[in-house]
Amino acid sequence: MPDLSDAPVSPRDSALRTLAVEQAAIGDLKAKLDAHFDRACELILACRGRVVVTGMGKSGHIGGKLAATLASTGTPAFFVHPGEASHGDLGMITPTDLVLALSNSGETGEVTALLPLLKRLGVPLVSMTGRPDSTLARHADAHLDSGVKREACPLDLAPTSSTTAALALGDALAVALLEARGFTAEQFALSHPGGSLGKRLLLRVGDIMHSGERLPQVALGSPLRDALLEITRQGLGFTCVVNADGTLAGVYTDGDLRRTLDQHRDVLSLTVDDVMTRPGRRIAPNVLAAEAVRIMEDGKITALAVVDDQQRPIGALHMHDLLASGVI
């Protein structure tokens, strides 16, 4: 045990030492990855139920995070407190599940007490401990060695390096499973619909466009005055201009209006055909809203006409809609 009678180090030196010790602990994990890691991945990938993660104390906190990471990356998982498991919560575990148990010592009483019950259920067990010769490790179908040489705590007592190593090893396991499953960014977004990533990967133009009575449009050949009134009425900064068959002929925008005023003296004598933009930027309703952002930014425009397969306007999308939806 370190001699604590030495002169105290500065807070920054203490922090640097802690980071160095924990960095070394993570680095040492590379040499510990062996056939047991491969076996653990095989067992989890073959699991038809869920991965039930358990652990006590600090290992339990790491286990809770690991369960959440697994669940959000394609491996259904949840955390069960080992103490509660012995008092009824074991009923959450079914024969189709797999248990992933964390214990730095591998001898935590609340965790090892579950071993006979898990064996009776026939549930595969993957353990993560700092001692490959521990009770938990010996009874597991696959053991992940998260052992460290020492804790970053100067007393070598408080779980620091050991929890960091377990956290990193858990992340390595989750990522290996993610890649083995071919897990995609869109699948990730499905479990994060409330976040900005979910909005970028899930929200489509049709979800946020203005449609029905909120769709600004005038017929080809209409007086320019009608187009201006429609732009003002809908407040989207543009109007669609449609052919007799209902297809999009072009658009008339605020920018077109400024150019019209610069180039024409008698604007009231004009029809929208004379000054509209042809064919006009357009987008399909099933396109990701994030792609609409890119089109607007590239074209330096603030609105798009939304058209169906026959190029008939069915909606209108403004940059403000994308801002309000959280896509940008």
Results as ranks from 00 to 15, higher is better:
2 P>D: 15
2 P>S: 14
8 P>C: 00
12 R>N: 04
19 L>A: 08
21 V>E: 09
25 A>C: 15
30 K>H: 14
42 E>P: 09
50 R>P: 06
50 R>V: 09
53 V>C: 14
54 T>R: 10
61 H>P: 02
64 G>H: 00
66 L>V: 13
66 L>R: 02
67 A>N: 07
68 A>R: 02
73 T>N: 13
73 T>W: 08
75 T>P: 12
78 F>D: 09
79 F>K: 04
81 H>Y: 06
88 G>K: 12
90 L>F: 14
94 T>L: 14
96 T>M: 06
97 D>R: 11
97 D>S: 12
98 L>I: 12
101 A>S: 01
102 L>W: 01
104 N>S: 07
105 S>C: 06
105 S>M: 01
107 E>S: 01
108 T>A: 08
109 G>H: 12
110 E>D: 15
111 V>E: 08
112 T>R: 06
119 K>T: 14
124 P>L: 11
124 P>Q: 04
132 P>I: 15
133 D>Q: 14
134 S>W: 13
139 H>F: 10
152 A>Q: 00
153 C>V: 06
153 C>T: 05
166 A>H: 04
169 L>K: 09
170 G>A: 01
171 D>C: 07
172 A>Y: 00
174 A>H: 06
174 A>D: 11
174 A>M: 13
178 L>F: 03
178 L>E: 04
183 F>H: 13
183 F>Y: 13
187 Q>T: 02
191 S>E: 07
192 H>C: 02
194 G>E: 15
196 S>P: 09
197 L>V: 14
198 G>T: 03
201 L>D: 06
205 V>T: 11
206 G>R: 15
207 D>I: 05
207 D>F: 10
214 R>P: 00
215 L>C: 03
217 Q>T: 05
219 A>E: 09
219 A>V: 01
229 L>H: 09
229 L>K: 05
234 Q>E: 14
241 V>M: 04
244 A>W: 02
245 D>E: 10
247 T>K: 05
251 V>A: 11
251 V>L: 15
252 Y>T: 00
255 G>T: 00
257 L>T: 02
258 R>E: 05
258 R>H: 11
259 R>C: 07
265 R>I: 11
268 L>I: 01
277 T>M: 05
281 R>N: 13
283 I>K: 00
286 N>D: 15
294 R>P: 08
295 I>K: 08
295 I>M: 12
302 T>V: 09
304 L>P: 01
311 Q>P: 00
311 Q>L: 07
315 G>Y: 02
319 M>W: 11
320 H>D: 10
321 D>R: 03
322 L>M: 03
322 L>D: 12
